[in-house]
């Protein structure tokens, strides 16, 4: 029983760290551009198809295929921002939100046109033996997922806190006008944010597809919406919040699947969101902000 709980916790950590990677994209874009990029989940789907194209159709080796996937997603993120969101910089927030939903449908429909609706099976590119520690089995994909997400999060944290571009991002997120007054190019900072967020979504997409091994055009929707929940849970706009929110969400999901009900696990996850927001509307690590008049 104890080993079982431990295994479920580790599974939860694996799924949760993927949610966390995706949630980082939501939270960073929200922090900088003050918008919810609902097309973010579909970047995962594009990443998964990009990996499929690279490995199965182009026969690229694993490492170039991964690089290809990350480049495709980052460029796509930048293009989406430039084409769909930038013209709406001063538009009402609702217009931007609806546009984001439109972009999401556009990406899903485009991949439906290209790759059709039938799910495509995909062989995982991660072939590492599972290990056994004191009776607890940890699969190869779990190890890789945990290592990759940990490295990504450390790298992102260092980037945000230690580099000039990172402090520019923090400045824009806090006060866009003041950031412009110290000479920060806000448009370039927003572009960079979308590129980083989409890069992380590509990494998440690769890990996700290695776990689920099947591609379909709507595959980004559910992890996307759960990662959004994770970002809100952790406090939207907060980077450590997104990491924490993602991991907590993954663990709750995994434990409820194992010990309560597989069918109810999503309902439980969303109920947790409702409860947390009732008790602490700003999320775990979110800051209470007084809206400026």
């Amino acid at each position: 029983m104890f080993n079982n709980i431990l295994e479920q916790l580790i599974n939860g950590l694996r799924t949760g760290s993927i949610y966390a990677l995706i949630a980082l994209g939501y939270t960073m874009v929200y922090g900088i551009a003050k918008m919810i990029n609902f097309a973010h989940g579909d970047i995962i789907m594009v990443g998964a198809y990009a990996l499929y194209v690279a490995i199965v159709l182009l026969h690229l080796p694993v490492i170039p295929a991964i690089i290809f996937t990350c480049v495709v997603c980052s460029v796509l993120g930048i293009l989406i921002e430039r084409i769909a969101y930038k013209p709406l910089r001063n538009a009402p927030r609702l217009a931007v939100l609806i546009t984001a939903i439109g972009v999401s449908y556009f990406l899903q429909s485009a991949s439906l046109l290209i790759f059709k609706a039938t799910p495509i099976p995909f062989q995982s590119i991660i072939n590492i033996q599972s290990i056994n520690i004191g009776g607890v089995t940890i699969s190869g994909i779990t190890i890789v997922t945990l290592v990759v997400t940990t490295i990504s999060m450390i790298a992102l944290t260092l980037f945000i806190n230690k580099t000039k571009a990172g402090s520019a991002m923090r400045a824009v997120s806090e006060d866009m006008g003041a950031a412009q007054l110290v000479g920060i190019n806000v448009n370039r900072t927003i572009t960079l944010t979308f590129a980083i967020g989409s890069f992380l979504a590509a990494v998440a997409g690769i890990l996700y597809i290695c776990q689920y091994q099947s591609l379909k055009p709507t595959m980004g929707a559910l992890p996307g919406i759960k990662a959004f929940v994770a970002a809100v849970l952790g406090g939207i706009g907060s980077i450590p919040g997104a990491m924490l929110g993602g991991i907590i969400l993954g663990i709750i999901e995994s434990l409820s699947k194992a010990f309560i009900s597989t069918e109810l696990s999503d309902a439980i996850v969303f109920s947790v969101l409702v409860i947390v927001l009732l008790v602490k509307p700003s999320g775990f690590l979110g800051k209470k902000k007084n809206e400026k008049v």
Partner: peptide, 21 residues
């Protein structure tokens, strides 16, 4: 600017560093 608008969540040194952006 009016109301100073320093970056509250950044350190004094980081604020100055951004001034030289």
């Amino acid at each position: 600017p009016e109301g100073r608008r320093v970056f509250a969540e950044l350190s004094v040194k980081e604020n100055l560093q951004l001034g030289a952006y």
